[in-house]
Design a protein around this nucleic acid. Sequence first.
DNA 1: CCCCAGCCGTTTTTT
DNA 2: ACGGCTGGGG
Length: 730
Amino acid sequence: MTSLLSDLNPQQLEAITLPHQSVLVLAGAGSGKTRVLTTRIAYLIQSGQVSPSGILAVTFTNKAAKEMLTRITAMLPINPRGMWIGTFHGLCHRMLRSHYQDAGLPQAFQILDSADQLALIKRILKDLSADDKKFPPRQVQWFINNAKESGLRAAYVTIDDVFSRHMLEFYQAYELQCHKVSAVDFAELLLRSYELLSRNEILCQHYRERFNHILVDEFQDTNPLQYKWLKLLSGTGTKEAAAVFAVGDDDQSIYAFRGAYSGNMKDFERDFGITKIIKLEQNYRSHGNILDAANALIENNSERLGKNLWTAEGRGEPLRVYNAPNDFDEAAFIVEEVKTLHAEGIALSEIALLYRSNAQSRVFEHSLFNAAIPYRVYGGMRFFDRQEIKHALAYLRLIANLDDDGALLRVINFPTRGIGARSVEQLQEDAKVQGGSLWAAALLKCDGEVSLPQESHKSLKGVAKFVFLIMTMRQSCGELALPQIVECMLIHSELLTHYAKERESSERLENLNELINAATSFVHEAGNDSLAEFLAHASLEAGEHQVGSDRDALQLMTVHAAKGLEFHTVFLSGLEEGLFPHENSLNESNGIAEERRLMYVAMTRARRRLYLSFTQSRMLHGQTRYNIASRFLDEIPQTCLKWMQAAPRTSFRYSNSTNPISTSASSIQLRSSNSSRGGWKIGQSVMHAKFGTGVIINCEGCGSDARVQVNFDQAGMKWLSLEYAKLSTV
DNA sequence: CCCCAGCCGTTTTTT
DNA sequence: ACGGCTGGGG
C-alpha cells in the first residue's frame, strides 16, 4: 500500500484515496492523470473497498483502455478479466452481447464501422431513388449519427422543414434495414445499451449493484448520450448509487465538432450533487516558460472552470518563434533545427512536428525526404481500413452470417469471377421480390447446381461458383481454429493469388498475412476462438495506423492526434490566421475558443523546447495565400519568447531576399501595425457603405492587390479590394 | 471489364 | 494542387 501511494502530491493522494462519493477531478495537462486513475483503481481493490468486478472504467480510445489495463496489472497481481475496462463502445458491446435477447438483437448481430454504415446508406438512398446531389450520403450519415448521439430514435426526431423530413425518411429506412440485416452501428451500440438499461429495470438494478465505482477518463469529451448512459448506469440519487470518478480538463476539450459536450462537466456537478472538485495543477512535464505561455494563452477563454498549471522545475528555455517567408522556408528551418537537435543527441522520436491540418504535412515530408531524415506520419489509413483487409473481412463476415448483404456485395465479384453489374442487379431485384437476403436469392438462382457432387465443382460458373466457394469455406470452419479459418479463406477466395498478380502488391500481401497474425493474437488475448467476436474486434478496434517500423523517426501529426502525447521538443507550425485558428472556426459559435484550446493542447505537449512558426505566404488549394500571424502569438507574453533569425542554410527553395520582412522586429510590426493589409485583421468587424456591417474572415494579396473576404450580416459573403472598397472599423 | 477524363471537395476524428 | 470518386467510352 505504501509503495502504491508514494511520490504523490497532496491533490493526487486526495483523489486516489477519496471515500465512496462522486467527484470531479480537473486534471491539467501533464498532471499525472492516468497515474491517478489507475492508482485509484488499484488502491480501491487493494484496500478491500471493492472487488475487481465492482469496477467499471471507461475511456474513449482502445489505446487508453489498454494503457490503463497494463498499468493496473503491473500494480496488482489480479486477473483483469473481471474488471470492466474499455471504451464506451466496447463496454456497451459487451453488455449487448450478454443480453442480446433483452436488447432485441439476434445473437449474431454485426457491427458496422463508419465505412460500412456509409455503404449501407448509399444502398438505401439508391433503393429509394433519392437524388444524391440533393442528399449527399455523408450528410445523411451525419444526420443519423447526430440524432442517435442525442439519444433520438427516428420516431422522436422533430421535423421543421421539407429537407429534414426527407432526412427522417432515410433515418427510418436505415433503422429498418439495420434491423433486417441485424446490423448495429457505433452510435447504436450506445443507444441500444442505454435503452436496454432504461427499459429493463431488473438488469439495470443488477449492474447498479455490481458497479460500485465508475471511473471516466477524458470526461470533457463525452457526448450527451454517453453522459445519459453514465447517469443511468451509476443510478445517481438512488440508494445503491455508484461513486463516479470523472477525470477531465475543460481546457483540453477539442472534439466539440464531433459531438463532445464539455458542458457535461457542469451538468455533472449539478446532477451528481458534486461537493468536491479536485484540481491537479502541478505539471510534471514541461518547463516554466512553456507553462506560462500556455496559461497566458488559455486565460483568453471565458467560461473556464479555472485552473493554472505550475511546475517545480525551472523556467527552462524561452519558446522559439520563427517567421518564415513561405512554407518551403518554414520546412527548411525546421529541418535544420531537427538536424541540430539530433546531432546534440535528442532522439528523433522525441521530436514532434505538429500542424493544424493534414494538408500541411506534404511540404514537410518533401523537405524531410530530401534531407534524409526518417519520419513517421500519423493519421490516414488504419490496418482494418485497408482495402485488402476489408475484402478479407467481408469474406469472413459472409462466412459468419450468410445474410450480410454488404459483405456479399463487396466480394461477390472480387477477385473477378465473371459476375457483372447486371447479374448483381438481378440478384438485388430477386432479393427484393423474395423479401430475403442477397445470399438467399443467389442460392435460389443456382438451385441444384451446387449440390452436385464435388468432382464437378470446377465447371461451375458465376454465381454458382461463388455460392459453392462460400459454402465450402463455411463447412471447413467447423473443424478449424480461427487463424486457420482466416488462412483458408485467404487461399480459397483467391485473394492471395489475386494480389500476388498485381504490381507493387507486396505490402498488401504482407497485410493479409498480418491478418492471420491478428487472429492468432486475438485468440491469445481475448481467450476466445469465435469468428463473430473477432469480427466485432476488427470493427471496434481499427488497429494501428501503420505497421510499426522500429527505427527512430521524427513524429509528424495533427495537433488533435498529439493529444495525450509528450515530446522533448515540439515544432508547432503554421501559426497563421486562417490556418490556426482555422478560417472555418470563425463562423462557428465558440469556434475561436476551441481553436485556442487546441493551441493549448499543442503547446503543453512539449517538455523542454517549443518552436512556434508562421509564414507570410503559403500554397493552399493550388493558390498562394498571404497570411498574417496567428492572434494566438499575440496572446503569449513576449517575455516567454525568443524570435529566431533564419539559420544559414544550404538549400533554399526560395530566397527570402525579395521579402524585407524577415527579422523579428518587423515581424512584430507586421502583426501589430498597418503594414501589409492596411491593418485589417481576420475576425475584425467592419462597416461598408453599401453592404453594412460584417466580419473579415479572409484576406489575400499585398499592396494594391490586397483583398479581404467579408461575411456581411445582411449581404452575405463578399470579396472586396481594399484599394477601392471603403471599409471602416466598427 | 477496365481505364481514364472530368468533377468535387479540401479542419480536426474515435468508435 | 491534388486525390478520390463517378460515369462514360473503348
